[in-house]
Design a protein around this nucleic acid. Structure first.
Lengths: 212, 212
DNA sequence: CGAACGTTTGATCACGATCAAAATAGGTGG
DNA sequence: CCACCTATTTTGATCGTGATCAAACGTTCG
């Protein structure tokens, strides 16, 4: 069920999405840009043979669904409860042109959406489940909200698996290994503590083998 | 050795690059856009631990190095002898704004560069060396120039390996398997014949297991 | 309380990496 | 034209990682 096209106006509209709801659908025409103000969104594509992939995770401040292609290349699904502002393509385009004209730096928001997707490619191009997971967590730490008991970590392991091109079992085991090595801790399923950022970085960059 | 910044003018310049030469470097500021008029270019990144990845292959007609980020995210290297037109960022920006205004479709050239990168992510996120290779070849057939003895296929297997996140050995064996199955043929090292496009598509999309 | 979903753990197996070496192609100079 | 050198491809053998299958456990929500 797609978002009701209730407002015929082209002005920006503030909207909300419950957990699991879809902001826009893969294959639909790119006629809305969503600027996230609160919550986490995952980009999802389903291959023809039904294989699911998570192409990126997006956070508050990110703009997603920019019309660099005619049709959305992924579905945007709410991982948590999400608030966002929806712009019609036309109004967004004008903003872009204006921004292009004013500052030398242009297309900043486009880079902000494309870059995570680009980096995922690099991530899963590297070998080693532990390496991938460490690099992934490392890239997340400055995007997650802090809380008394650690960073708020609302991602499902299933989604992480589909993001890293691994199975849920492997993600689980790799997380356990990081816990055993006292690099991270997870006091709750949705809490993450980085105990040793340096070791995490090291695990991410070195082509480490599995067993100590 | 980078391209000499001979022309201080900001006007478009037609340039050439020998095999192996670099059009622009990963990490450099994005102040030039290159529009390929002839030849094949590979996008290359080197991870901190020295791992090489080929992020995309580009062909005649493609524009690369668009300033969606401040710095180039990959080096552009000539796979074959390459002719291209180099635009200064400023002049390109004006062209973009103009194009934005005129037709409803905007940012077409940006999509043209970003889309291959996006699709590589999807490709290597799927399991199976044979699947990846088949999907890769399938995506190439309409970009390669025809010749009397098959499509001109100038890509090195090493590059294909770094593109598909496989080893050269695996690429070689997978190619052999496709030859054995009479799906493709390679009369020469730089020639490719698609004998059975349907079977190629099938191999690409089905999650096929290895042995018949 | 029970059902659905996600996580955890265990056991086995297959695919692709790795190591090693031969074969082929490409290029250069005698 | 052949000898020689390098780069790339090809083939073989072994090994290890992560997929797969199966089942138990924990959470969440009706």
């Amino acid at each position: 069920m797609r978002i009701s096209a209730s407002s015929a106006t082209h002005e920006p509209v503030t909207m909300h999405a419950e957990v699991g709801k879809t902001l826009f659908w893969e294959g639909d025409e790119c006629d809305h840009v969503c600027e996230l103000s609160h919550g986490v969104v995952r980009g999802v594509t389903i291959s023809e043979d039904g294989e699911r992939q998570v192409t990126a995770f997006f956070f508050a401040g990110d703009q997603i669904g920019l019309p660099v292609t005619d049709y959305y290349r992924y579905s945007a699904e709410a991982v948590t409860f999400v608030s966002y502002v929806r712009y019609a393509r036309h109004s967004w385009r004008n903003a872009l042109i204006e921004s292009c004209r004013s500052d030398g730096k242009l297309l900043k928001s486009i880079g902000a959406e494309q870059d995570p997707i680009f980096r995922r490619g690099l991530l899963i191009g590297r070998i080693g489940a532990l390496t991938r997971l460490a690099a992934f967590l490392s890239s997340l730490i400055d995007r997650l909200d802090p809380s008394p008991r650690g960073l708020v970590f609302p991602l499902l392991q299933v989604d992480i698996a589909d993001y890293l091109a691994l199975t849920p079992e492997t993600v689980c085991r790799s997380l356990r290994r990081l816990r055993e090595q006292r690099i991270i801790d997870m006091p709750a399923h949705d809490r993450l503590l980085i105990l040793d950022p340096a070791a995490l970085e090291l695990t991410a960059h070195l082509g480490l083998r599995a067993n100590p």
